[in-house]
Nucleic acid binder design. Structure first.
Lengths: 177, 177
DNA sequence: GTCTATAATTTGATAGAC
DNA sequence: GTCTATCAAATTATAGAC
């Protein structure tokens, strides 16, 4: 009985499109066709593209944490992050939504860039918390790990192969040892 | 006496635009205004956007190697790569061209994706060569380092701060030790 | 909440004069 | 090699009927 609202289905379509082609790589008509309505109806739910993607980014951030396997030890938390990022690649070789928007941030509306930054601030803080005690500079280590995960997704997409992600992130937990 | 051809000036403008806003973040008219000509003249030099960006990506790859400080030892070569990537951020907080195109590769013309992949294949091979003997799996280490550099650029752009790049890549050479 | 219709602008691209 | 002029299509967005 999982009833999905039209607004959520629009966000689902937008999420997939942004992760595949970026902010400027899709249109309201694309989303309308994905959902099975008209573009004017999409505007009824989200007045502008900026508002839509800002909301999408917030939802992505919330869901990211909700789907994260909880772990108390440093290695376990790193593994959870690695697994979370890898999951997007398995689903149609998609980029991390905020990795994509972060790369494109120079040409995005301010609200989208702000929401993207919040995603990174939250995951870096959460990851650093998990690394406390396991290394001398947890925040710097967290930044390094997130950077490697985002970059590994770029490599996997450029090569068209999920294995590149696995190779580029092999031994990630050793970094935190 | 450095005479720059119109074609090169178009590529310069396109390079800056792609690194800032991505493949779909600029138009032929944008480039024409940057250079001081009309969009029809841009098409005279590059028939399609796909052809333009493909050629741009090839030029970027060649220039990347030409500008790379040569080093024989592993740590020196890693430092050269770090410095090369960092340079783009200093110039108006730009993303690595191929990092941007790699992220967007799911929505790009085939020739652009192929040229992007070549960039990564070349730098990974070159970096791995420099790491031979310094670690047990040079290619895997090269992938990890390139991933971290690309991801660090995303972080720096999302935060709007070059310092994030420095933090996320701190002790990069230690990885290769 | 969805639709038709449409506005206003931008896009990639072409034809042909100079 | 650059221009004017133009095209066909796509874009974000709005007005108003149902």
């Amino acid at each position: 009985m999982s009833e999905t609202s039209t607004a959520d289905r629009i966000l689902d379509a937008a999420e997939s499109r942004v992760q595949t082609a970026g902010y400027n790589g899709f249109s309201f008509r694309d989303l309308a066709e994905d959902v099975g309505i008209k573009s004017a109806s999409v505007h009824h739910h989200f007045p502008t593209k900026e508002a839509l993607v800002t909301r999408l980014t917030d939802r992505y951030t919330d869901r990211f944490f909700a789907g994260l396997k909880d772990a108390n030890d440093a290695a376990g938390r790193v593994a959870a992050y690695r697994s979370a990022f890898r999951q997007a690649l398995l689903n149609d070789k998609k980029m991390c939504l905020c990795g994509m928007l972060g790369a494109e941030s120079g040409g995005l509306p301010g609200a989208v860039t702000a929401a993207t930054r919040q995603f990174f601030e939250r995951i870096v803080a959460h990851l650093a918390e998990g690394l406390a005690g396991a290394c001398s500079n947890p925040r710097q280590m967290a930044l390094a790990i997130v950077a490697r995960l985002e970059g590994a997704m770029i490599l996997a997409r450029a090569y068209g192969s999920v294995e590149m992600f696995d190779e580029a992130t092999a031994g990630l937990d050793v970094m935190a040892a």
